[in-house]
């Protein structure tokens, strides 16, 4: 049951936020609803744990916000300037983690900003295929690749284990053109 505790707390918090007031009634009601939902729709428990680093996580959130705005402006420009003649590409980028949690977080982080999203994750080959709108030619692939690698490093710095982070830095150090930025 302890493994389901985070889900219970989270659902209770959602319930209380939906009511907008913290009172004994909403709190108890929330716990009751959360328990019912958790019992009725059990999610598989993922054994691995995340190491949350608060400062790196804040950096990640800040970076995502800036990325959301910058990419938003780029896509608006793409809409107005190129429109029907817009071009795009699908780029293979190495996936730097084998944790399901982090792969999910990475895909979500990459896919949040306009113009880019993860089309396909290939766990066996450790590759993710990223769609990027606004690529003009094959030369842009390297830029997209570095951008996604940088995002992966930020996510792993915020949520990964120290071992994973070291492995990522090691791999990025060996990237052509020095992927670490």
């Amino acid at each position: 049951m302890t493994a389901r505790l985070p889900q219970l707390i989270w659902l209770t918090a959602v319930w209380v936020l939906l009511w907008g007031t913290i009172s004994a009634k909403t709190l108890l009601g929330g716990i009751l609803v959360a328990a019912l939902v958790t019992a009725a729709f059990p999610l598989p428990v993922i054994g691995e744990r995340l190491r949350v680093r608060p400062i790196a996580l804040l950096w990640l959130v800040g970076y995502l916000t800036v990325d959301l705005v910058v990419s938003g402006v780029k896509i608006i420009w793409e809409t107005l300037r190129h429109g029907p003649r817009a071009t795009a590409g699908i780029v293979a980028v190495p996936l730097l983690t084998d944790s399901d949690w982090i792969a999910t977080a990475v895909s979500n982080a990459v896919s949040l900003a306009p113009g880019t999203f993860v089309l396909q994750l290939d766990h066996q080959r450790e590759v993710c295929y990223v769609y990027h709108l606004g690529m003009r030619g094959p030369a842009d692939a390297e830029r997209v690749r570095r951008q996604v690698l940088g995002m992966q490093r930020r996510v792993i710095a915020a949520l990964g284990t120290p071992g994973e982070l070291a492995a990522v830095d090691d791999q990025l150090g060996r990237e052509p053109g020095g992927g670490r930025r």
Binding site: A86, A88, G89, I90, L119, Q120, Y129, M135, P138, D140
Partner: peptide
């Protein structure tokens, strides 16, 4: 024809 690069397709 919209895609200038398609690594997934070639894979």
């Amino acid at each position: 024809d919209v895609l200038v690069v398609d690594h997934l397709g070639s894979r």
